[in-house]
Write a protein that binds this DNA or RNA. Structure first.
Lengths: 356, 356
DNA sequence: TTGCTTTACGAAACCGCTTTCGGTTAGCGT
DNA sequence: ACGCTAACCGAAAGCGGTTTCGTAAAGCAA
């Protein structure tokens, strides 16, 4: 276990060969005799030789590294996705022993600058970004830079780049249909700011599902709030204060749904019987909420690996538009969805409030 | 927005200067006239020049990169820490515009190999590892490799390296004392496998606190289980099946505590009144558990930044043993701790079970 | 033996940048 | 006018690899 890393030069000297020969021997060139190749390899791992990656990558002109731009945190309940996504990415990359660089941008400007620096400085051969905005400048930038990239999520016009997403539109159709089948005709939607494409997709799903069921969309039942549990709570309070409150709520995320549950409980109502709530994400923690949260679950573990594989393929020259993968979320029933009960409870509440 | 990155050479040609001169102009050497320096800088960002980092780092002999070894996942409730830690690390590193490399090892052997490769190949100038085992081979390896590193957590003999940890021993003393002050004399401990040093620390705190309060440690009240919510549930069921079950439980993590709550509720008991539960971590979603989880909270956001700063200082030559930071956890009371109630409820239950 | 491939390695250019070292030019004093 | 110092820039040697090209030795045929 020496401290100083040993270079190709001193390895070559040790073997009484030239660096070029040693390099070719290690890299499996055909013009090296089997005996010297063996000799070189043996010496190499006896001395613990590891090629300097900066030198190697400079030479071969390939950073063999991809970058991951962390979503800018909303500081709220920490993103449980990130760890899983990184794990999946890591797995995909490790098959070729590429490296994974993560970047935590502070502002949007900062993020653009980061991207531009990383690709121009040759630090990464590709990037994965997540949670695109409706009209995401990062995508434009990356296309201009001709830098391979994949996006976790997608925008409205997503034909010409690679993405992995779960169908939020479809998911909310499923959720609303489920609630309708339980008898609910007044289902509210709690969403996140619509500059995020996913927020728009899920709202679209909600709208079309309501209409497909022969109901009319009541704009009062659509609440956009901060993308956090607190946001969910605020939005739910707005809904419950309505003259005619909803009997069910679909939320754009599990985190917001947790806030909804809190608001409902704080009024003495019971989620799942007095008001149904369906979240989105399928976070495992939902098992432990009060009551356990019904949610549209997505195949989390998959995303990272798929994104990694896609990115590598594109870097290899694949057409990005060939790599677009849309997963479906499935309904994971726990305890916050239920049939339209005797609606007396919350109706009484709202009526009582109106009288006061 | 050109696609091909422009090199120092073509920038120099563009300016009718040599590469050396341009390089020095950009890097603030004194032997460059102010006018040419301006000229160079202007041309540089007009053309969008970014120094190739592989080349630069090879030349200066510094990878300007640190690695983060992700804790090997127990697949359970995804690690909420990771994202926060990465964010903090990123912030610390970005002050010098260093890069952050994350590695996801599969096995312990894999992990050792990763470390060895990363440092020997000059990919990283330092590493941060987390959740050390009692006798962690990674620490030995890194010391042998003379690679700067910091550890998130610490081992029993932690005098000669840098670490950031929160005092688990102290935290469990606080937790047990709190429960004793509420009248509990039979407090159980749910822990994780003791090869993890943190598990041992917290158990030590539990033991000494029990004794300091003039009570005797009942080994039956110490349950070691899988480090997950399921583990917590299993352990709690063991405890509740005891002839004389505990009236309070301290858990080595919030995740395990959630499992404990589930087990308690499933027996028709109410956490916080029939049995008190205190978790550890202070995860924000504890607010939404049933009931909201009382926990020993730690200053999460801080860890990443501190670890990053420490690592940079050590790379700069600081003595690692000068960088050891022990934070204290504080009691965050929510709803799962309460006074020793009429203990009849759970006693009746256990008695009932014995009779059957 | 000569001549011609193979085989197996050495030599050297190159990747893009940093940094030391020299040397030319300008500016100053005398 | 001369010499001397400073200011500025060019030249070149690395950093540690990869890869092309050339060539000596070895093999084979005639």
């Amino acid at each position: 276990m020496s401290a100083k890393p040993i270079s190709l030069k001193i390895l070559a000297a040790h073997l009484d060969l030239t660096v070029g020969t040693v390099s070719r021997a290690l890299n499996g060139y055909a013009d090296i005799s089997p005996v010297t190749r063996k000799r070189v390899k043996r010496a190499a791992d006896e001395l613990g030789y590891r090629a300097n990656q900066n030198a190697r990558r400079l030479s071969i002109g390939n950073p063999e590294t991809v970058g991951y731009l962390m979503p800018r945190v909303s500081s709220s309940i920490a993103q449980p996705f990130v760890a899983q996504l990184l794990q999946g990415l890591g797995e995909a990359l490790s098959k070729r022993s590429w490296d994974l660089l993560v970047v935590q941008p502070n502002s949007s400007k900062d993020e653009m600058a980061h991207i531009e620096r990383m690709v121009r400085s040759g630090r990464v051969g590709g990037l994965v970004i997540s949670r695109p905005l409706k009209n995401d400048p990062r995508i434009r930038l990356l296309q201009d830079l001709k830098c391979p990239f994949v996006v976790h999520g997608r925008t409205a016009s997503c034909a010409d780049y690679a993405w992995y997403d779960v169908d939020g539109d479809d998911a909310f159709v499923t959720a609303v249909n489920h609630l309708v089948s339980l008898g609910h005709s007044r289902t509210a939607f709690i969403g996140a700011p619509l500059q995020h494409q996913f927020a728009q997709d899920r709202l679209n799903g909600y709208r079309s599902a309501v209409q497909e069921n022969g109901l009319v969309v009541d704009e009062d039942l659509i609440q956009i709030a901060d993308f956090s549990d607190d946001g969910g709570e605020v939005a739910t309070n707005m809904l419950l204060d309505l003259p005619v409150p909803p009997t069910a709520i679909v939320c754009v995320s599990d985190t917001m749904a947790l806030g909804a549950l809190a608001a409902i409980r704080s009024r003495g109502l019971l989620p799942g019987v007095d008001i149904s709530v369906i979240g989105y994400d399928g976070l495992k923690f939902g098992i432990h909420s009060n009551p356990p949260l019904t949610t549209m679950a997505q195949p989390q573990a998959h995303a990272g690996r798929r994104l990694g594989d896609m990115l590598l393929a594109i870097i290899d020259g694949d057409d990005p538009s060939k790599h677009q993968e849309l997963q479906r979320a499935h309904l994971l029933r726990r305890k916050t969805d239920g049939p339209l009960h005797n609606a007396t409870v919350q109706t009484n509440v709202s009526i009582r409030e109106e009288i006061l």
